[in-house]
Design a protein around this nucleic acid. Sequence first.
DNA 1: GTAGGGGCTGGGAGCGTTCCCAGATACCAC
DNA 2: GTGGTATCTGGGAACGCTCCCAGCCCCTAC
Lengths: 338, 338
Amino acid sequence: MPQNIEDIAKAAGVSRSTVSRVLNGEQYVSAATRERVMAIIEREGYTPNPAARALVTQRTQSVGVMIPHDLATVFDNPWYFPTLLQGVSDRTTQRGYAMLLWMGRSETEEDLIYRRITNNRLMDGMLVASATGDNPLVAHLLESGMPLVTVERPAAHADRISYVTLDNIEGARTATAHLIAQGRRRVGIITGALDNMDGLDRLVGYKKALADAGLPVQSDYVYTGNWDRPTGYLGAKALFERGADAIFASNDIMALGVLDAAAEVGLRIPHDVALVGFDDLPVTAEVGLTTIRQPLRQKGAAAIDLLLDLIEGRARGPQQIFLPTQLVIRQTCGAQPN
Amino acid sequence: MPQNIEDIAKAAGVSRSTVSRVLNGEQYVSAATRERVMAIIEREGYTPNPAARALVTQRTQSVGVMIPHDLATVFDNPWYFPTLLQGVSDRTTQRGYAMLLWMGRSETEEDLIYRRITNNRLMDGMLVASATGDNPLVAHLLESGMPLVTVERPAAHADRISYVTLDNIEGARTATAHLIAQGRRRVGIITGALDNMDGLDRLVGYKKALADAGLPVQSDYVYTGNWDRPTGYLGAKALFERGADAIFASNDIMALGVLDAAAEVGLRIPHDVALVGFDDLPVTAEVGLTTIRQPLRQKGAAAIDLLLDLIEGRARGPQQIFLPTQLVIRQTCGAQPN
DNA sequence: GTAGGGGCTGGGAGCGTTCCCAGATACCAC
DNA sequence: GTGGTATCTGGGAACGCTCCCAGCCCCTAC
């Protein structure tokens, strides 16, 4: 059934233009006509051809999303990507857009993907998740003038790019302050990788909490980790030796490593050492880990909201959004959950 | 820079048609002309407008993918969705297509998504992952005549739909036969939910292995589970009582439940009871579970290959593909890994 | 009565491609 | 020389929309 707007017009006894006006909810159509046209559209199950529409409006009503390879398949935190994407997808659908997804393959083939993305002009804007380092795609898109939002703060051009990220500093400050509030005074930190804003900001938050409490930052209480369980384990061993009575692990995975080390050495948590993590992975509820929850789904939704606002001209970039985190009190910090 | 094919034609001193022929790699263009046009295209960084192309060719070079809500966020097996999607994405990009992704939200709003999908004609075909029950979207698409492939065998219209799934029967048969080969004679099964082809087929494979070995199927060795850890635990308790010396758990999650039960009751695995699971979740390597590995990434790639072949007319549907599984021998079966 | 303006409608033009057909040229066989 | 065929090229038409402009009608104000 080769249905086009002209067929509908004929069936309704009106012109192409009128049907178009009804379709797009424009004014200057009499109520009677509008109703009649709507009825025909409904009856025929007609939907306008999006390609034709895109050709003239220069808008496709869809957005592109790029997920780097390591994010999608990372073993440690398999929840991250689906949950984020769910938030993205929900909001995209809600606001009447479709989502084009690219997932990075091997790094060597990322170039191909980048070219595909920039050549495919079937999208009105682009969301890039966790662009690490000096991502060439981000640079490209930035230059092309296409509306662009990244999830997490990009390493380069951060002031010229719109992004959505966590308030990492405040989250880490809260975690550390909570440990101090439990009476701990020798609070150590196992940082994430420090080539990365998340890692750096969480360290800043830690230091801030100490400063707020009038405690000095002791360099031997700062252990540089790498987000993974082994560095959590090693960091804990080191901090135990140096007499720490509390540890803020910059993510939950490393916090699990801390638990490993404590079990091995025979230290009791939270009695001997209190512990707070970061991320609120599902698995941490099982082990009673006190942690900082990040609103993953909202992060995706907020990023899409920003991108669509940029596309629709409701917002002007660059714009940065820092989402609040939440302290989730369980057993490892030694506080009574209230 | 409003670049269109006409601009390129003018710059190269040829006609629109010739540029189009070069762009599409058609014959009947002299080598000299082709080279000259290519050079201009390269220099100007020109790429044809996909909307205009789609308008006339009725092809968008993109495919839609629908992931139901519960699959994306399912707690038990968070690897499933990203890994499958990675396979889908890889192959899609490789073959020069883009991917439109929809993720189911709450079931109540699935209707909205379905309408969005069927209205959005910006795709040449549709991949539906794990359509459970009598999925209305599948029925819709089937009726619309749009090329359609599902991952996993659909519950309804299975003979009219192209799909890619595991060879569940053979996988389960292999698992069970392996237990028998270890000298076990009282082999029980904890099935998955039996409203579902995966669950049913794995039971069939189990029975087949018994028959092959000349062993009777005893109904009290068949425990109907529900894919989750608690039913694995309960099933194991029941089978232990009935004297089973081996258990085939229809998925790894339930196998973990079996380990829970064994630890509680004080049975040694594999000494007292041998155990084989199904899926090869990453976590199972840690606990030494012998299991059946399913090629998740290949599943996604195979589904896309089938879909694109259908779209491009290289294949004729409906077509069913059963992917082979692989026995991964670890500790819980009692065999020596070789 | 006439001018002016707002509500409503219709149709031409154009978006950037591909497809089809016509035409030009060159070559070959008879 | 002629007819036939293969190679190469150009331009009209069409894909299905939106946008713009013109025109109609009716109401109101002067």
